[in-house]
Structure formats: C-alpha cells, structure tokens
Write a protein that binds this DNA or RNA. Structure first.
Lengths: 139, 139
DNA sequence: CAATATTTGCATCGCTGTTGCACTTGGCGG
DNA sequence: CCGCCAAGTGCAACAGCGATGCAAATATTG
C-alpha cells in the first residue's frame, strides 16, 4: 500500500483514497479490468465519474494502459518497461475465450512488422484470443 | 450493385434495401466505419436498430469483420482470404492518428508469435497506430 | 397470388463515457 | 496547528452505443 502511495507521488498526483483504492485493485489483479468491474470492486464508495477521471488520469500519466477487446475497454497497470524511462508502446494481450480474462503477456516482444512504404508506426497493440493454460485441458 | 446482391445471396441472406445499402457503403469505403458513420451515410433511411442487426448478421456470416480501436468498434468488409473457404483469423489494421481513418492492411501477414507454453491461439488482432502515407509529409 | 418465415420499426431499457458546476479535500506556507 | 487554494470529487444531466420484445411490413417459395 505504501507502494501505491509512492507511485502516486512519483507521478505528481495527490494522494486521495479513490486513487489509492483504484490503483491497489489494478495492482493486485493481474487481469485487465473494465471500469464497471472496478466500480463493483469499490462497492459504490466512489462516484462513477470519479472512477472514470481517475482512470483517465492514470492513463495520461502512464501508470496504466488501455486494453481493447471486443467486449470493450479495460485497464491494466503498466510494467516497468512501459511506465519507466524507456517507455515503449508495444502491448501484447491475451484474451481467454473460456474464462474471459484478458492478461498482459510479458517477456514476449512483438516481432517488427514491415509496413508498406510511407507508413510510420507509433504504437502497436496486439490482441490474441484463444485458450489460456488454466482453461486448456489438452494434456 | 449486382455484386452486393450476389454476396447477400451467397450467404443465404434475403435481399433487403437496408442490407444492400449498408453493404454497398462498406464496400465503397476502404476505411472501417462505425455504426454511427454508417447511420449518417444512410441519412436516417433506416432505424438504428435495423443497422445494428444488419451489421451483426454480416459479422456472423463472415461478410464483414469488426475493427477495434480506442474510439470504439468499426466494421470493414472481409477480403477474399477472410471470407472465402480458407477463412483465416488474422487481422492487421492501421489507424492514422492524423486523419483518424482506420484501414485494413493487405498483403502483410502477422509474423507468428511464440506464446508461452499452454496458450492456444485462435484469433490474432493487430492494431498499429501511426501516420499514414497521405498524412506523412516527411519526404 | 397467397402463405410463411424473415426482417424492420418502434418503444424501451441498461451501460458507457463526458461535461458543467458546486462542494470538499490534500498539501502547501505561515 | 491553521488557513488557503488548487486539485479532486459528487451530482445532475446528456449523448451515444447496443440489446430486446413485439407488432407491422416484406421477401421468398410454391
């Protein structure tokens, strides 16, 4: 929990209970969460709008990043290489179609894509859907 | 336009004016369109709900596919290799942050990603954000 | 042309995400 | 420790997305 406070301070954000709680929830969860899921976990202790603004602030500061899947938008904490000094913009996420959880896959870099001439790439976002190890019973 | 009718027939869909027009719009546009954009192009000639159902039907039949970006859901017609017999599930889209258009990139296959053990991949969706050739003035 | 299964329009609902404004609070200096 | 003020929060309201149930309209088939 001290870690959460530190993270807020490091990003020049005031330490408020909403920010603490939202960041704690996202840190404890390794799956990406939607606004609605976070709201439910907070058990109506904060206004919807406040949670939206908190998430937006975190994204702007690079503390968390957006995760897209067909069901909508989710959020996950950035790992060190994402929020640190050598901030990169490649994200690889895996969505399990059985359990429905979306996770960041670490340790794998997206191979460089050779785009046609004239295209300039800034950010890469890869979503792989399939079955995760826990739901995969082919063994 | 006959082509549109043929496509509908090939997928066992009744030939209705809403389906014709929606498919024609998507075929003429090479950028992916959102529900709202399609609705505007149709100039209120069809009910919102009808357009939603039409798009859903097309996705189910494999005539169009969903395109995700941070602003929401869009739709684009599947190219032959996507809707034909050797239907694949890899999609590469490029979103230009200047003009805002999202296009399918053809002729480029996503390099295979070596997932950690236990993961089974079914569908791959890659969104690259950056600047497209038309908006890129570095020359 | 008639029968029928499909499609459409309308009403309605719930969820997502945003904005404006007034109130509250965190962190600063004294 | 206290007051100040910018930053953050809650509330009300709004616009858009996406879905469902039902009655009316329409495309196909014979």
């Amino acid at each position: 929990m001290t870690k959460v406070k530190d993270t807020l301070r490091e990003h020049d954000l005031r330490n408020t209970s909403c920010r603490e709680d939202v960041l704690a929830i996202l840190t404890q969860n390794n799956a990406a969460l939607s606004h609605g899921e976070i709201e439910r976990e907070l058990d109506n202790r904060f206004d919807r709008v406040t949670i939206y603004r908190t998430l937006k602030t975190f994204v702007d500061k690079g503390i968390i990043h957006k995760v897209l899947d067909e069901e909508g938008l989710r959020y996950a904490v950035c790992k060190d290489q994402c929020s640190g000094p050598q901030h990169h913009h490649d994200h690889l996420h895996f969505k399990c179609t059985v359990c429905g959880l979306t996770n960041c896959i670490e340790n794998i870099t997206i191979p460089p894509i050779q785009l046609p001439a004239g295209y300039r790439s800034i950010e890469t976002n890869l979503l792989i859907q399939g079955v995760c190890p826990l739901c995969n019973s082919d063994n």
